[in-house]
Design a protein around this nucleic acid. Structure first.
Lengths: 176, 176
DNA sequence: ACTAGATATATAACAAGTTATATTAATTGA
DNA sequence: TCAATTAATATAACTTGTTATATATCTAGT
């Protein structure tokens, strides 16, 4: 049997390790999405929806900052979401370079649905998987990775009635 | 100003968060690679070299387990490394389906070089960035992300003489 | 010995991230 | 006011991860 080299090497491969766990979490969140929200929204599109919901219309540059990733990546994701009918772009009146991205009606509807289903469920499931993690980062990562293998997010759906997303993020409807 | 939505959402976006930090670490490790080992070896190829160095020749399936990623991904990475002259494949004598991947002489040479330069330096730099992290996972991630922004790995090169990789991974030359 | 199924790897198509560069619009300074 | 610079977004090419599927070889059972 061959051991997990990326785990063994510790700090030397922390980057690969973080990416790997992140991808596992996203894959399990995708299962949740289908099983719980009944859509096939790609997991990385959720933060875009959340940012637009929190702040109202944003430029590509603002989204870049909100998501912490590169501008071309954001542009492409937004284009995809545009062709999916979730967002729309209009160029700014003051500055013709900037394109203001906003939720369409369909986007608003989806957000409302996600706030009642996927978002709280994912939050709680991940929170449960992280409950009891302790110690140095590498140890917590090992514990989390094991926890996700042993009991994936889809089996951590809360039994009690799902709280609405607003109870996690109280300040959301301000900037509209 | 727009805040960091992925950070704000906490557990709900932990997958994106982990991927994002992982990519940042890998990008900074790439800088280290060029500045310190004088090669342009892609960061994700390091664990493959380390696995082959630790265990000697491995099948694609074994590498898949060692790296914890999908078989087609491993196959493609190995093909790239083959065309870079770092590894070679011969089909197994007993079982014609399995292809045994081993380091070429050039691969061995590169590994020896990396053990004296990049691997210990990256280990120590990441360890330093992680020193003092405390508390729940989300907190430690926030601290780490801030630490990497404030002082990237390339500025954490140890001043003292670099210890050899073998001092981090004492059991390495066994399975050859 | 042959067929069925299982196993190992390869291939194809896609997604999402990156960097580098092109394009377009706005700003600034002579 | 216009030329040069700066700034925002778009486009292109690449990497690395994925899933689904094809191919090739081995193994088992009759």
């Amino acid at each position: 049997m061959v051991e997990d080299v990326v785990r063994t090497l510790g700090y030397a491969t922390l980057g690969s390790r973080l990416k790997r766990i992140g991808e596992k979490l996203q894959a399990q969140t995708q299962e949740l999405t289908e099983g719980l929200a009944g859509t096939d929204l790609p997991v990385p599109h959720n933060p875009v929806l959340a940012a637009l919901d929190l702040h109202g219309p944003l430029s590509i540059g603002d989204l870049t900052k909100a998501l912490g990733q590169s501008q071309p990546g954001v542009t492409r994701m937004v284009n995809r979401m545009k062709s999916d009918g979730l967002v729309e772009a209009r160029s700014d009146d003051k500055d013709g370079r900037v394109s203001r991205i906003s939720l369409t009606q369909e986007g608003e509807r989806l957000v409302a649905h996600l706030k009642a289903t996927l978002w709280p469920a994912a939050f709680l499931a991940v929170q449960e998987a992280c409950a009891g993690l302790e110690g140095p980062l590498l140890d917590q990562l090992a514990q989390l990775e094991d926890a996700l293998s042993e009991k994936p997010l889809i089996r951590r759906k809360p039994v009690a009635p799902l709280p609405h997303w607003s109870s996690f993020s109280p300040s959301e409807e301000e900037n509209r």
